[in-house]
Design a protein around this nucleic acid. Sequence first.
DNA 1: TATAGTCTGGATCGAACGTTCCAACCAGAA
DNA 2: TTCTGGTTGGAACGTTCGATCCAGACTATA
Lengths: 211, 211
Amino acid sequence: MEVTESRNIEDVTAPMGGPPVETDTRRRIVHAASTLLQRQGYESASVKLIAGAAKASPSSVYHFFPGGKQELAIEAMRYGAQEFSDLLTAGLSSSPDPAQATAACALLLADTLKESDWADGCPIAVTALETIGRVPGLQQAATEALVHWQELVTAKLESSGIAPAAARSLAGTVIGMLEGAELLSRVSGDDTPLREAAVHLAQLVRATPQV
Amino acid sequence: MEVTESRNIEDVTAPMGGPPVETDTRRRIVHAASTLLQRQGYESASVKLIAGAAKASPSSVYHFFPGGKQELAIEAMRYGAQEFSDLLTAGLSSSPDPAQATAACALLLADTLKESDWADGCPIAVTALETIGRVPGLQQAATEALVHWQELVTAKLESSGIAPAAARSLAGTVIGMLEGAELLSRVSGDDTPLREAAVHLAQLVRATPQV
DNA sequence: TATAGTCTGGATCGAACGTTCCAACCAGAA
DNA sequence: TTCTGGTTGGAACGTTCGATCCAGACTATA
């Protein structure tokens, strides 16, 4: 309560305008929470487990996140969403051709997932699905992330001459395809679905008329 | 295990056509478990909650499923997977044109989801994602369901002249697209992603060469 | 050094978890 | 009736959950 406020006022060294305050422990907690949420979801990623993974104690978690597990999860989802945005941006900017660029996103996701033993993929899918209609804060954070990712893809498609409406629609399908193919790949432990999704996404984008 | 088999053998009097069996407790438990697993996942669908939804008591759950929650979840996933197979079969057989047929699956899914307040969709996605690498029985049941659904789509595509390899690959993308678009639709509470997925799936199938 | 405020380790709370246990129930056979 | 075996309701087990508390360890300023 007052703890958070006074800390915000006095911590002049922290980055202005950014979200709360940046401590090493705090950052480790958010990072561990993000990883564990995407690995096993909201319910089975316990506060003690997260704290342990962050080499912190449960009291530190509640010190930095007075709102408890839900507040931590929301920030962890935002953190993970930003990381995923970076992955999308990297993929999208890897080629001027929008078809190759979207395919690159799928391939990049496949590589990242496989290299991390199917851990580092979409950071919000499990948590979001799990808490639909039951933890509004999480569902809203997930929706915002999905919208943002779709906007990234939309911008790329528009920039290569695809009409705005078609670009937005196609971008939704691209994000959906990535999410679905990732699900198949993670469950089956095989990156084939993501690699074939890359091919089909490229076909789909290539077939969309450019103005 | 033996419990299930012996019951199936002896239970010749109950289910067939006669007067309404007052309590088929076991079936109600499986049905309730299937619904709750797809609504909120494995961890937060507690045994007591499932039993309550099935108008049964926890001891009944452990009577019919000595293997506990995991054994129940596996059977509930198989049950739900069969229901989803029926939905896919209905969609696929709605048109001789494979493009229209796959699109129909997405639209059928969109309708089913929306009418049920985003509850009755893919019965395994949440549970499968949540337990990857931690509950092998569930992961395997999920993989089997996904493979079976992919085979249903593959058969439809092959039957309309698409080469086997291309059909299999495309079918994987179809299932992935359905899963991903459902995720977007459920999280955002909007059936637009599924409806646009229908359009793009039809485009994709139509663009695949037939022999 | 002393002081004040920030952070942390560990014990602890009540609630809920999966599971077990047992007495009661209910049908059909003797 | 009595017996028997499958079924049920409810209490209770130990564990773990999210969350709280507090004494002490930090860190920075004086």
